[in-house]
Design a protein around this nucleic acid. Structure first.
Length: 716
DNA sequence: CAACTATGTGAC
DNA sequence: TCACATAGTTGT
């Protein structure tokens, strides 16, 4: 078959008009085209006005992080507006047809970013194959945000778009969104009046200002309503608001508060993953179209294209779920920080505690602390008591329930007044079992991974999964491990026997209870799954504090305090008899911070210490993981900023079986190493840029490894 | 020096 | 990613 024959066949095989492009690719080769105006296909009519579309190709190799010019056929002129989804042919041999089949150069998804009159590209332009839908989903603001996130995290724009853009759904898109409601009036300060700067913050928002605050929320049930008031104030100024919370349960609580505050459901939407793709897209479109101006949602909502944003907010920024599992693993706090700066909005970071990152925002003056007076705190916080973890109860009943005397007495007394919360760390939450005698961590004899308690008395390696039946300490020869954690279920059983007259409920990973009634009951929960008690818990026990504090993680202390505060905040104030008993070493700083209910002080000290030691977030880091050679090459080729330190590389443990692989985890069977790059304060952007450049260079050669993680969380 | 494989580059 | 060009390598 001659080439001419092949070409003649092409249009018949491909119904899409755009395929005529195949005709010119062979006849007009790039090399033969002298410098000239952009040319396109032969004969076919192009859009009269601005016939060149700048297209962002969404999938495919990452170094395609640039815009490509495509011709806009006349018949697509009206629909091919900036922001719409398109399909384009891409790749060498585009559109060439042999034996009736297209060869190479598949159809790729993309977005039109802009329409221009001329192209810089000297060759013939291919035409847009198809406008997928006329809905402009990727506006300039969202695109700029995605770019900023990609840069900040040394990731590709395509990866970020994957996180930011919802999947298209035809039915949702074909519907019209309801017309926007007029802005509400400014809200009353309500419980914000408990914070000296609270009413002023609301007024600033309502008046069109952009206040920035780190808010240490008072314990108790009011914070969802306080979020709602902040949103209402922003709406009152004619602007939009976006609040990101860690999980669907919290989102539902804030959503309910918004419905109360805004007098109905028409002014805001809840955006969470469990809505399902269709409903999610429907709501996302309502936001994108400007029909709704206020959003509360989980992580992915951080990209929601709220029109004329006036406030971004995040609740509980220390929660791990704010950090995305997908490359480049952006953290909601930082994405919202970028939005606050780029879109010139107000910013509110709310938390019962305070992360070191939040403390840094306060310390460098970017945000103001929004806190209640000590007096106010004392009034609403429960009384906190510590009991030594080593204490063995004297009475037999307490011993049977494995409770220290004070804990036992507290439960018995409080059960007369209402529900009692018992927080038990998740089993397997402690990666580090240790020798009872010398505290040396118990390690696997095969791979040196940490041993974990699988059952009451079965041990297994957390890395390779091999069972250990006869452990003894490599240091001192001891054969006993420090008490392992008793899981929530077993604790519930034991407490049920000890208090037979009282119902015992559990809330944990699989069964998370939302609320419990205001009646005497025992509620055993793992951290983060605590149900809300309608009238507040009469008391709480925070058991096995050593387990939370003993994790081999830079954030162990901060995280333990966070989880304790979260549980303790559900307990009635001490004026109403609320009491919390925590079993932990009372000299430890997080424990003292809990007793004094002073998360801000704790975070400030922690920040100072990390600053001194050159730890994040003051110094910034990037983790580079991959095969040893690849790691070394990437680091060598990166134009790293002055003062960069390379820590490691060290061998990376295999991905624990059972856990889904995340970026940065070695593939099964592979031996990977990880190096940490550390830069002095102020060099974070330069570090990300350098690593991104080196990565792009390797990627152009087809090397996928290594993976890069900016601001790694899991540095021991 | 043809036939084959490794390496590199451009894609609109 | 993937086709294609080109440089480099082998074999007779």
């Amino acid at each position: 078959m001659s080439r001419d024959d092949e070409q003649r066949k092409a249009p018949a095989e491909e119904p899409q008009g755009g395929e005529q492009l195949a005709l010119i690719r062979d006849s007009v080769r790039k090399a033969k085209v002298p410098r000239a105006k952009p040319r396109t296909w032969r004969g076919a009519a192009l859009a009269k006005d601005r016939p060149v579309a700048k297209v962002l190709v969404d999938k495919g190799p990452v170094h395609l992080d640039k815009l490509w010019d495509y011709a806009v056929p006349a018949e697509m002129d009206a629909e091919a507006r900036p922001g719409v989804r398109v399909r384009v042919r891409f790749g060498a041999g585009t559109g060439r047809v042999r034996e009736g089949r297209r060869e190479g150069g598949g159809l790729l998804d993309g977005y039109i970013v802009d329409r221009v009159a001329e192209s810089d590209y000297r060759g013939p332009l291919a035409a847009i194959a198809q406008v997928v839908s006329p809905e402009p989903v990727l506006g300039p603001g969202l695109l700029a945000l995605c770019r900023a996130v990609a840069d900040r995290y040394a990731g590709s724009l395509a990866d970020v778009l994957q996180l930011a853009m919802p999947k298209r759904n035809v039915r949702a898109e074909s519907e019209t969104s309801p017309p926007p409601l007029p802005p509400p009036g400014p809200p009353e300060p309500g419980s914000w009046a408990r914070y000296p700067a609270g009413p002023g913050f609301l007024e600033a928002l309502a008046g069109g200002g952009t206040p920035r605050a780190v808010w240490t929320a008072l314990p108790g049930p009011h914070w969802p309503d306080e979020w709602a008031a902040a949103v209402a104030a922003t709406l009152a100024s004619g602007r939009g608001a976006l609040i990101v919370v860690p999980d669907g349960r919290t989102a539902a609580r804030v959503d309910a508060a918004l419905t109360r505050a805004l007098g109905g459901a028409g002014r805001h939407v809840l955006l969470t993953a469990d809505l399902g793709p269709e409903e999610r897209y429907r709501r996302w479109l309502a936001v994108s179209r400007g029909s709704v101006r206020a959003v509360v949602g989980t992580r992915a909502a951080m990209f929601a294209p709220v029109r004329d944003l006036g406030l971004v907010g995040i609740w509980d920024d220390g929660d791990q779920s704010h950090s995305d599992d997908h490359a480049p693993q952006p953290h909601a706090r930082d994405v919202l920080l970028l939005r606050a700066v780029h879109e010139k909005t107000g910013f509110l970071l709310g938390d019962l505690g305070r992360t070191v990152e939040a403390a840094q925002l306060v310390e460098n003056g970017w945000a103001r602390p929004l806190e209640a007076d000590r007096e106010q705190v004392r009034a609403v916080a429960p009384l906190i008591r510590t009991v030594d973890e080593g204490e063995v109860a004297r009475d037999a009943e307490a011993r049977a329930a494995r409770l220290p005397t004070l804990a036992w007495q507290t439960v018995r007394e409080a059960l007369n007044r209402g529900p009692v919360l018992v927080q038990v760390p998740r089993r397997g939450y402690v990666p580090r079992l240790a020798c009872e005698r010398c505290r040396e961590p118990a390690r696997c004899r095969h791979c040196a991974g940490p041993l974990e308690a699988r059952d009451a008395d079965r041990l297994a390696c957390g890395w390779c999964g091999r069972a250990e039946t006869a452990w003894h300490c490599a240091e001192c020869g001891g054969a006993r491990l420090r008490a392992s954690i008793v899981g929530a279920r077993r604790t519930a059983e034991e407490l049920g026997r000890a208090f037979p007259a009282v119902p015992v409920r559990t809330s944990g990973r699989d069964h998370v209870l939302d609320t419990v009634p205001d009646r005497p009951s025992l509620v055993v929960s793992t951290p983060g799954a605590e149900p809300v008690a309608e009238g507040g818990y009469a008391a709480a026990l925070l058991l096995d504090g050593w387990a939370l504090l003993g994790r081999p993680d830079l954030r162990a202390g901060e995280d333990a305090l966070r989880r304790w505060l979260e549980a303790a905040a559900l307990v009635r104030g001490q004026e109403d008899g609320g009491l919390v008993v925590v079993t932990a070493e009372p000299t430890q700083r997080p424990v003292q911070a809990l007793v004094r209910w002073d998360p801000a002080g704790y975070a400030a000290r922690e920040l100072a210490e990390r600053s001194q030691l050159g730890f994040p977030p003051v110094s910034r880091m990037a983790a580079v993981a991959g095969p040893g050679e690849a790691v070394a090459e990437l680091i060598a080729s990166a134009p790293l900023p002055e003062g960069t330190e390379t820590l490691g590389p060290v061998p990376l443990p295999p991905t624990p079986p059972g856990r889904p692989r995340r970026p940065g985890d070695p593939p099964p069977g592979a031996r990977w190493e990880r190096a940490l790059l550390r830069v002095p304060p102020g060099q974070g952007r330069a570090l990300a840029a350098a690593v991104k450049e080196a990565k792009a260079l390797r990627l152009a050669r087809g090397d996928k490894d290594p993976t890069v993680r900016v601001d790694p969380l899991d540095i021991g």
